[in-house]
Design a protein around this nucleic acid. Structure first.
Length: 301
DNA sequence: AGCCAGGTTTGGC
DNA sequence: GCCAAACATGGC
């Protein structure tokens, strides 16, 4: 990987990051937009434009401080090649990683991840994106970049003071009081930005205190917003994947999550993201009977 | 038209 | 502790 910083644009070359897959198609972040081959969003209060270049991608506007931020945000310091090598003992995980080269798990802002995944509950990806965008447009700070208008996430204070009726008018439905309750907690001192440095179990228990946050949303916030790579969110797709390919038949996704973490280790959540995408998009089948025979498994590996 | 979606909450055993 | 039902909304 080679990094150049020219004027206000950073170039990251020879990095295996699939920008479109990671920002637009992976359902870990919902507020990037694509326009004329470039990707735009406001993240952590910065309006950014990311472009795919010949041998990598560029970030603008970017100074040295933003570049450091971006290296973290795009998870460019993790050795995904080594992670792939460590997956040989789990053929379906290896297969998922091989099918999605350049998929990274972003390191998002914890508050932004919290809002997005409260909205994700019992919802589909298309509508989650609509709701996140609507929330930002209605209540977030307005930015302009390259003549395009962008919106950040609302602050905890803003959201805490927003009438529930306004949120319902945006279409968030019964999640409106969850958003407001979580915002009031954070505005009132809930230690959202300390969860990075807590052990997984403690950070998870803390998040469960927030309204609208159960085990699965907590794991998403920990994985996508708090640097907890071992957090293993289990939604309907990952549950089907673990049932079909690992024979996990326990009742309750909490048990599946615990087993996934125990089995796959410190970066279980990263691996989860590959399996989730393969399951959700049909790249890997989930019907009983999809599991290859011993002969097939050997041939596949 | 009807089932489903990156679930959580609540209330009843 | 476990389970079922309710919850808003719209995608497909």
């Amino acid at each position: 990987m080679e990094i150049r910083l020219n004027r206000d644009t950073a170039y990251v070359l020879d990095a295996v990051l699939d920008v479109r897959l990671t920002l637009m198609d992976s359902a870990q972040v919902f507020h990037w937009t694509e326009h004329e081959g470039a990707f735009y969003a406001v993240i952590s209060g910065r309006a950014l434009c990311v472009r795919i270049e010949q041998t990598g991608f560029s970030i603008a506007p970017c100074d040295s401080e933003t570049l450091e931020f971006a290296l973290d945000y795009f998870d460019l310091r993790r050795d995904y090649g080594a992670l792939r090598t460590a997956c040989e003992e789990w053929p379906v995980v290896a297969r998922a990683m091989d099918m999605l080269p350049g998929l990274h798990v972003l390191n998002q802002d914890a508050w932004e991840a919290l809002l997005a995944f409260i909205l994700s509950a019992n919802n589909n990806v298309t509508r989650i994106r609509r709701l996140v965008m609507a929330l930002c447009e209605a209540l977030g700070e307005r930015f302009e970049l390259d003549g395009r208008v962008l919106y950040g996430f609302p602050s905890p204070e803003t959201l805490a003071a927003t009438p529930e009726s306004l949120l319902r008018a945006l279409g968030v439905g019964y999640r409106a009081p969850y958003l407001i309750g979580a915002a009031r907690a954070v505005a009132g001192g809930f230690p959202l930005n300390n969860l990075h440095s807590l052990p997984y179990e403690e950070a998870h228990a803390e998040l469960l205190k927030l309204p609208g946050v159960g085990d699965k949303v907590a794991d998403c916030v920990l994985l996508f917003g708090c640097g907890h790579a071992s957090a293993f969110p289990v939604d309907v797709w990952v549950e089907r994947m673990m049932k079909c390919w690992f024979g996990m038949n326990e009742r309750g996704r909490v048990r599946v999550s615990a087993r996934g973490r125990a089995l796959l280790g410190a970066q279980a959540g990263i691996l989860q993201q590959y399996m989730f995408h393969c399951a959700r998009t049909g790249l890997i089948p989930l019907e009983p009977g999809a599991i290859p025979s011993a002969r097939g498994a050997a041939a596949q590996a």
